[in-house]
């Protein structure tokens, strides 16, 4: 589809962006006295489905479904959006492999809305019919399955699939002619590599493990990052400063939640220029990511309210909004 083919969809998205939560609306949600009043606040703002049960998780699930339903209504070819579901698709594969290898598939662990349904994914893994998967999943699926079945190494199984997911996103970004998909892939790789380096550093993983887990990307020198991770968090911070990721280094120094916030905020910064793009698929992809970010932030607030966290602790974890 050409950029002009998205004119209708982009204009509709512009109208929908008005109802995205701004930082001030989230402050109002945060100011709600308890979990129940926060849920009522969401319902008053049109979230959820009046015909369904009105607990927080159902409301958030409904909102996610609404987003994808709207996109499907507007666009006939969903191919440009595939890259957004790769991580969920690989997560479902991971859940299916672990479920099949342990004889305990938990339907609650699967994401809905992927190109392969959870039931189909479980069937493929059970029958070892990996050729039915998309090409970029086949080899990793077989390798992860064998690793878990014979080696009983759940962590290695995770690493194989996480790396395959990142490689799939990277390849999709490289192949795509759409700017936002390239930017999204680049940002995701940077964020994932930094997260992985920090995690490996904290759990004292070996260089070999890191080599299996991390994926080459343009913005980061992965070799240097791995060496820094071996030396400690201070070295990671130094490297990030040197590589132009000062904010990430500062967030890492501040706290884990501040670092997680930085990761999500960076993605929002990547998509923010799409607010001024009147054509192309970019604003649609940006809207989906903005909605995911909005839902995640609302989930953080609801979870905080449910567990009686103080406002300051919740606010520290709140993400920047797209609007």
């Amino acid at each position: 589809m050409s950029d002009k083919d998205y004119t209708y969809a982009v204009a509709r998205i512009r109208a929908l962006e008005v109802s995205l939560f701004s930082a001030s609306v989230l402050e109002q949600l945060l100011a709600c006295a308890d979990y129940e009043s926060a849920v009522s606040f969401l319902l008053e703002h049109g979230w959820g489905d009046p015909q369904l049960e009105n607990d927080g998780e159902t409301i958030l699930k409904t909102e996610r479904e609404k987003t994808w339903k709207t996109i499907r209504e507007m666009v006939s070819d969903m191919t440009p959006f595939d890259v957004l579901s790769y991580q969920n698709l690989f997560h479902n594969l991971k859940a299916a492999i672990k479920g099949v290898c342990t004889d305990g598939v938990d339907p609650g662990l699967f994401y809905e809305g992927c190109s392969i349904s959870p039931e189909e994914m479980v069937r493929i893994v059970k029958e070892k019919e990996f050729e039915s998967l998309p090409e970029f999943m086949r080899q990793a699926a077989a390798e992860a399955y064998e690793t878990l079945l014979h080696g009983r190494d759940g962590q290695l199984c995770d690493v194989i699939l996480d790396r395959a997911a990142l490689e799939a996103v990277r390849d999709a970004g490289e192949k795509s002619k759409t700017g936002i998909i390239k930017d999204y892939a680049r940002s995701l790789l940077v964020i994932s590599n930094i997260k992985m380096a920090v995690r490996c550093c904290r759990t004292r993983k070996t260089l070999d493990f890191m080599k299996r887990a991390m994926v080459e990307c343009e913005e980061l020198n992965v070799e240097k990052l791995m060496k820094a991770a071996l030396q400690g968090e201070g070295a990671i911070r130094d490297y990030l400063n040197e590589a132009g990721f000062k904010e990430a280094a500062d967030a890492l120094f501040e706290s884990s939640s501040a670092f997680e916030c930085w990761c999500d905020n960076r993605l929002i910064e990547t998509i923010r220029p799409q607010k001024y793009n009147p054509f192309s698929v970019g604003p649609l992809i940006a809207y989906i990511l903005a909605r995911e970010n909005e839902i995640k932030t609302v989930r953080i607030i609801l979870t905080g309210k449910q567990n009686g966290f103080p406002e300051s602790a919740i606010r520290e974890r709140m993400r920047e909004m797209y609007v």
């Binding site: 002009k4 004119t7 209708y8 969809a9 982009v10 204009a11 509709r12 998205i13 512009r14 109208a15 929908l16 008005v18 507007m74 009147p278």
Partner: peptide, 14 residues
């Protein structure tokens, strides 16, 4: 036509 597509998108929501 192009402007009409955009107009339809907006009116469908508002």
């Amino acid at each position: 036509g192009v402007a009409g597509q955009a107009a339809s998108g907006v009116v469908s929501e508002d």
